[in-house]
Computed example of a mutant assay.
Amino acid sequence: MFTSPEPALPCTQAAHTGLPARAGLGLKTGHFREVLGSLPDIGFFEVHAENYMVAGGPFHHFLGLIRQQYPLSLHGVGLSIGAEGALDDQHLQRLAVLIERYQPQSFSEHLAWSSHGPVFLNDLLPLAYDMPTLNRVCDHIDQVQNTLKRPMLLENPATYLAFQRSSIDEPDFIAEVIRRSGCGLLLDVNNIHVSCVNHQRDPLTYLDALPLQAVGEIHLAGFAEDSDSLGERLLIDDHGAPIDQAVWGLYRQVLERIGPVATLIERDNQVPAFNVLLAEAQQADDLLTHVGSQP
């Protein structure tokens, strides 16, 4: 198990990652030049690690310049932490090289799986929450943290189905993974809203069951809405729309519980002009400032 040199954190203080307690943006290639030309007042940028797992090229050129000006978070989408098989060692080694190159303030991955044997799927698929899965996820996180020589953050998932064989409630499963592995929590507020609507759960009950003292970063995003085969409301975590008011409200509830924490605005589809994303980041910064000014 990876052992962090940091002491256990009190319940009123979120896990420290090195990211400033400000709003950040997912860095898109179409915005490289605008960012470098204007150097906007933004807390940090985040990129998907898999987009940079090559030795050179224009992506590295621009990211290197931007990294000189801003804190950086790397967000993985391909480790397949929950897969039944072993982690892809080549993928993990490429990730280690990337982290050594950029020394990001934070690295995170998903509580999900996306590979089965030699087959890789372009999706983040849900897990059955039982003891074999718990042991496997903890073993995989230990391997990641020992290889990277740093703690990672684990993101709570957005889900659309649940397994009958699950014997552990999702927040309890996440809490036990964090307790056993020493990793932190990337709290995706949109994922909580999406999952709780889809499974007809109360989002505040879900939130309060999580180990909020382990939160090192927060994600905010938009969703798409559909209906399932029974006509029930179905939310899709597509990162293709502005942040919904319900998610902003839940985000405020999070900040009132744990105080200001680095917060990323995610937009991966239907990406708008850079100034539109900056406006959402400013809205998050306003909430961070307001909560930080409270006794």
Results as ranks from 00 to 15, higher is better:
residue 22 R to D: 09
residue 148 L to R: 08
residue 147 T to M: 07
residue 67 R to V: 05
residue 225 E to W: 02
residue 139 D to E: 09
residue 29 T to H: 08
residue 290 H to K: 14
residue 27 L to I: 04
residue 281 A to G: 14
residue 28 K to S: 11
residue 85 G to L: 10
residue 86 A to R: 13
residue 33 R to S: 12
residue 135 N to Q: 15
residue 42 I to G: 10
residue 280 E to F: 00
residue 247 V to K: 01
residue 136 R to W: 02
residue 58 P to M: 14
residue 228 D to Y: 10
residue 263 T to D: 10
residue 36 L to A: 13
residue 16 H to Y: 08
residue 218 I to Q: 01
residue 157 P to T: 09
residue 160 Y to K: 10
residue 253 Q to F: 02
residue 232 E to W: 01
residue 112 A to F: 11
residue 157 P to R: 06
residue 189 V to I: 13
residue 170 E to H: 09
residue 54 V to L: 12
residue 145 Q to W: 07
residue 96 A to I: 09
residue 131 M to C: 04
residue 78 G to T: 06
residue 84 E to H: 14
residue 81 I to F: 08
residue 99 I to T: 07
residue 54 V to P: 00
residue 205 T to S: 13
residue 248 W to Q: 05
residue 178 I to C: 04
residue 35 V to L: 14
residue 148 L to Q: 05
residue 217 E to W: 01
residue 146 N to G: 00
residue 19 L to A: 04
residue 3 T to N: 05
residue 189 V to M: 02
residue 216 G to F: 03
residue 287 L to F: 07
residue 128 A to P: 02
residue 252 R to V: 05
residue 57 G to H: 04
residue 159 T to H: 06
residue 23 A to C: 13
residue 260 P to Y: 07
residue 172 D to G: 12
residue 18 G to I: 13
residue 163 F to C: 15
residue 178 I to R: 06
residue 39 L to Q: 15
residue 274 F to H: 11
residue 139 D to R: 06
residue 158 A to M: 10
residue 168 I to F: 08
residue 267 R to W: 04
residue 165 R to G: 04
residue 132 P to M: 13
residue 233 R to N: 11
residue 77 V to D: 11
residue 207 L to M: 13
residue 72 L to A: 09
residue 17 T to H: 01
residue 67 R to K: 12
residue 162 A to H: 09
residue 5 P to C: 08
residue 149 K to D: 14
residue 193 H to P: 00
residue 234 L to E: 00
residue 269 N to R: 11
residue 13 Q to F: 06
residue 43 G to A: 09
residue 223 F to E: 00
residue 39 L to W: 05
residue 141 I to Q: 10
residue 58 P to Q: 15
residue 16 H to T: 13
